[in-house]
Computed example of a mutant assay.
Amino acid sequence: MPTTSNPAIRNLLTLDGAVSPAGPVRSGEASPAVAADRPITLDDITVKTLAVFAVLVASAFLTVFLELGYLALPALFAGMGLGIFLALRPRPGAAPALLFAAFEGVVLGEATQFFDALHPGAGTQAVLGTGCVFAGMLAAYRTRKVRISAKVTRWAVGAALGLLVLLLAELVAWWGFGADLGLRDGGVLAFGVSVLMVAAASFFLLLDFEAANRLLRSGASHRWAWYVAFGLTMTLVWLYLELLRLLSYLRWW
């Protein structure tokens, strides 16, 4: 069965013993803390994901309302650092997921304000677009309209890594040599890169749904629902930012 390319979800599924079934507790053999453990459910994932997104939206709103855009760069690096840490060393608690959402909310709030200033309405359209893509991918997964094969998964991961290398090369060329490779300048090449990014992020949602489904079937502890929410947030934040950029390109043409 294929695994997700999202490192957060992938590492969760490969943890040694972390996702072992939360077995039944015999009377008198477990402490209250252990006895309170139970298998993860779809309601757990739904509620925790909604909580993480509530923090994300609140953070973005406060960033715009209180004019905290100057915190976007520190929040970007803090969010990246926390995201990498959680991807490499998964944690099932609420605090890391909610803190990550707070950092990313600052980034999203400033990015939305920036693109909205250039192209009014871009933020609203990106929100609607992200919601539609999420709903469409969820429907495609539930109805099995899209088959998640190992071959397709490898292709998607390879394509995403290739795009990431290209974007890193763009940053190095720009900061180090003042050169523009044309990957983010609004031209035809930049438009194509953004389309591929949106497609990759959309496909990664399918992989994340599959990973969450495997987690449900495995009977893992309900505490890992927070980590599932964190992994989904990573993908959706990426999708939203790429849609913002893609919409800005369409406005330029």
Rank of each mutant, 00 (worst) to 15 (best):
A173H: 02
R245H: 08
G123P: 04
V146K: 15
F103H: 06
P74Q: 04
V133T: 12
T112Y: 04
W252D: 15
H222S: 11
K145C: 00
F115W: 11
G192V: 06
A35V: 07
A220G: 07
S194P: 08
L215D: 02
V152A: 14
R89Y: 02
E110F: 03
A179V: 13
D208P: 09
A135Y: 01
C132V: 15
R10K: 14
L183N: 09
T130E: 00
W226L: 04
L42I: 10
L161I: 08
V57H: 00
N213A: 07
A199W: 05
A190W: 01
L164D: 00
P96V: 02
N6H: 03
V152L: 14
G81K: 11
P39C: 09
W252K: 15
L73W: 02
A111F: 04
A126V: 07
A18M: 05
L13M: 04
G231R: 08
M197D: 11
G28C: 01
L168Q: 13
F203A: 10
L62E: 04
L86V: 11
Q125C: 12
A87L: 06
L88S: 15
L181H: 03
S5G: 14
A78R: 13
F77M: 12
I9D: 09
Y70R: 15
D180L: 05
S27M: 10
M197S: 15
W226E: 00
P2V: 06
A159C: 12
R142F: 02
W224D: 02
H119F: 15
L205R: 03
R89Q: 01
V165E: 11
L216F: 00
A97N: 06
V228W: 05
E242A: 15
A75V: 03
I45N: 04
A159M: 14
A58W: 07
G121C: 09
A102Y: 02
L71K: 10
F61T: 10
W174R: 15
Y249C: 08
T14D: 12
G219P: 03
G182P: 14
L161T: 13
L246H: 06
M234K: 15
C132F: 12
T63N: 09
A94V: 03
V146Y: 11
V57Q: 00
L108R: 12
A94Y: 00
A200P: 13
L232V: 08
M137H: 00
F191G: 14
V198W: 07
A122L: 05
G93P: 09
P21Q: 10
A139S: 08
M1Y: 08
A30Q: 05
V188N: 11
F65E: 12
S31R: 15
A8C: 13
V165N: 13
V34N: 12
P120A: 10
R251H: 12
L138F: 09
S59K: 05
A139M: 10
P21F: 02
L99N: 06
W226F: 01
L247R: 13
F209A: 05
S149P: 05
L13K: 04
R38A: 09
F115G: 08
V55F: 04
I84F: 14
L164C: 06
